[in-house]
């Protein structure tokens, strides 16, 4: 691997880590259920970037592609279910504010 290539890969890794941090920040800072789901999506995208990076570094790009595509499919299913739950909450409360559904103690 040439020196330039290594620098590019490090930059890629740092960018993915930044996306991860943005996702966690979004998840923690928001009180809106839909935004929390967007935060989750950002987190998963960061992880997908990491998997692609790992595939590139080890030279197994085929495997990494398969994993990334599977990951995307599963994440879509999770988000669809989560949005369904949020829709039900909305039809009860007429609001997607997380502070409205804190009836049950931790």
């Amino acid at each position: 691997m040439t020196n330039d290539m290594a620098v590019v890969l490090w930059l890629f890794g740092v960018a993915a880590a930044l996306v991860l941090i943005v996702g966690f920040y979004c998840l923690i800072a928001t009180v809106n259920l839909i935004r929390a789901l967007i935060g989750l999506e950002i987190l998963t995208k960061a992880v997908t970037l990491f998997i692609i990076l790992a595939g590139y570094v080890t030279g197994r790009t085929g495997l990494a592609q398969a994993l990334a595509i599977t990951l995307i499919i599963i994440e879509v299913v999770v988000v669809v279910v989560a949005v369904g739950v949020v829709l039900c909450v909305f039809s009860h409360n007429k609001s997607v504010d997380v502070r409205m559904i804190r009836n049950v103690k931790g």
Binding site: F50, L53, L67
Partner: peptide
């Protein structure tokens, strides 16, 4: 997300 992050590092 934590598990997959770990999977990607272990894959590396």
């Amino acid at each position: 997300v934590l598990m997959l992050l770990s999977v990607s590092v272990l894959l590396m």
